[in-house]
Design a protein around this nucleic acid. Structure first.
Lengths: 344, 344
DNA sequence: GTGAAAGCGCTAACAA
DNA sequence: TTGTTAGCGCTTTCAC
């Protein structure tokens, strides 16, 4: 049993069917459903009633074909459950929906060369009005003629499109803040466990760390590189534990920081008494691991929202000049994994 | 500068344009692009060349309108960065793409009554060929006439649709296994920290715990309830720490388990010497917290893949009888947060 | 305020 | 193996 009315054969009702029932023209139905002006309240009501009775739903394919717009935004994101990318995706979805756009999602598998290009290609074919590229990795020169606005989250604007906007996630500043926190505690220098080199997100953090040390004229120890996982943090932690000079570590994300702490602890080096560790992201468990992790909080929701605002603006007002991005707030969360260095 | 060829005015090329350039009919272009048979290699090559030259892309809106199918699947998921839902989403995306379907995603905000219904409604309007509802919460009777196949991940089939398939995530069995592990270690009984009552995922785990205790005729302590967060685990942990009889705890996810361990530790109760704790999910950091967490691993990828197989089958072979779901594997990961109870 | 007609770019059915 | 003819259900344009 199909819901009320409908067409014979169980086919979905069309706007003509609604028009017929309401005793108006099909165009008028279209007007009402699109909230256009110049429709009398009386007619509007009749149309709405008829639509409700028939269980009518707009056919978005037809609408897209006729109007040339889909009211949808495509997202290219990493296929990982990492807290950062996942949080950004959620923020983007929410902001898109608030702006009246649906979301189409394509993941790129890491290690798949040309992954972003292929993903963008497939979104273009789906006919999105705009594209969000979330935390891409550096795949070399991306050349692609994209005719819709593109928002790049967390990477420099190196995208082939004509209308590209970008929002840094403020990672560099956050990383600098994290490093300075350790320096302020009295540590002579800070060791750094970075994310994979091809990630812009990793580079930003490394850059922030570097600039903090440089500004105070401190020695810069060799950078260790992990893959964001706690397992890789653990590996790096064993190396760090073997070096008696290490008193402070800045890890590029919380998962790695947790791995580092584990390795340090197993090696008999106490955190924070012997070694201080700072993470990055403020994942939900950060406050509950042992010891509770000092970290910097990424304002994912704010970044996603701000970025989408710019993107929607570029979609709907193609001629307006690109609005400046508002910088997201920086927040250092001091907990118990950092302390002054041990007195010698 | 638009890429090669194109139409005057920078409009995107259409299949007729490709046809003209290749010297064939428009229908032949359609045949080639859809991989239909009965096209000579010669013609196929000419068409492909022409399409490449023009930078042609299929217009999916037109295709959807003409064929009545979008080759896209809609996903309703929670707007949280929780490891479980995020992992399922990734698995679903990958499986959908492998099957040639694009993904449209709608989040439901928790606490939003009727959230799932609204989300499904919006996907229907977008014209998806099938719908995945991932880990829904119980919103009471969901009545909705859905005319496409629906896959419900991690909840009983209570969906209004005519063609609904479901895949449990095997949570009940996993929970039972986790509980039995503690019993096997010699614990008299096991306390349980559950997820929010309205989540089917939480109920399944509680049910598994209950059945393990019942089967061995053990006392069933009152269930504590958290909200999946480490913070709520910490709260519950304080309560548990106050009860000297508690020697074993099964938490419904790893985050809460981590919170419990923190509270226990702060209260001076050692894990696992005084109290054993088992989590659920095997999140990536589980192996690196202190102590490394014993937990059960959810096979998210397998579940998503299997569910999607069923869904695609229901989409493409509407008349075939629903295939039985293959059960996902069960995996208990024993680490260092569990041990025999303290001898009295 | 409202309506009629003409497409949007493709696939479906049928011919050739 | 290839081509022809009709739509799919909307929005657009222009008339009333």
């Amino acid at each position: 049993m199909t819901s009320a009315g409908g067409r014979p054969g169980g086919a979905a009702p069309r706007s003509v069917d609604v028009a017929r029932l309401a005793g108006v023209s099909q165009k008028t139905v279209s007007r009402v459903l699109n909230g256009e002006r110049y429709v009398s309240d009386e007619v509007r009501r009749r149309v709405l009633d008829a639509a409700g009775e028939l269980g009518y739903r707009l056919n978005s394919a037809a609408r897209a074909l006729a109007s040339g717009r889909t009211r949808s935004i495509g997202v290219v994101t990493l296929g990982t459950a990492l807290y950062g990318p996942a949080s950004l995706l959620i923020g983007v979805e929410r902001a898109a929906r608030d702006a009246g756009y649906a979301l189409r999602v394509v993941n790129t598998l890491e290690g798949d060369p040309g992954g972003v290009v292929g993903a963008v290609e497939s979104l273009l074919e789906q006919g999105v009005d705009g594209i969000v590229v979330s935390e891409p990795i550096d795949e070399g020169a991306v050349s692609l003629s994209v005719d819709v606005p593109v928002l790049v989250l967390g990477a420099p604007v190196t995208f082939g499109g004509t209308r590209t906007v970008a929002t840094g996630v403020g990672a560099e500043l956050l990383a600098r803040t994290a490093t300075e926190h350790l320096l302020d505690l009295g540590h002579t220098t800070v060791h750094h466990l970075a994310g994979p080199e091809r990630w812009f997100a990793a580079r930003d953090r490394t850059e922030g760390w570097r600039s903090a040390l440089t500004a105070r004229d401190r020695e810069r120890p060799a950078v260790l590189v992990g893959d964001w996982s706690a397992a890789s943090g653990y590996e790096a932690g064993r190396t760090l534990a073997a070096d008696g000079d290490v008193t402070a570590v800045f890890a590029a994300n919380d998962d790695m920081a947790i791995g580092v702490i584990r390795a340090l602890t197993e090696a008999g080096r106490r955190v924070p008494d012997d070694v201080s560790v700072v993470g990055f992201d403020d994942i939900p468990v950060a406050a509950y691991v042992t010891p509770p992790l000092t970290t910097v909080r990424q304002p994912f929701d704010a970044v996603a929202r701000e970025g989408l605002r710019l993107l929607v603006r570029a979609i709907e007002k193609p001629d307006a000049e690109p609005a400046p991005a508002n910088d997201p707030p920086v927040e250092l969360v001091v907990r118990a994994s950092t302390a002054p260095p041990p007195s010698r």
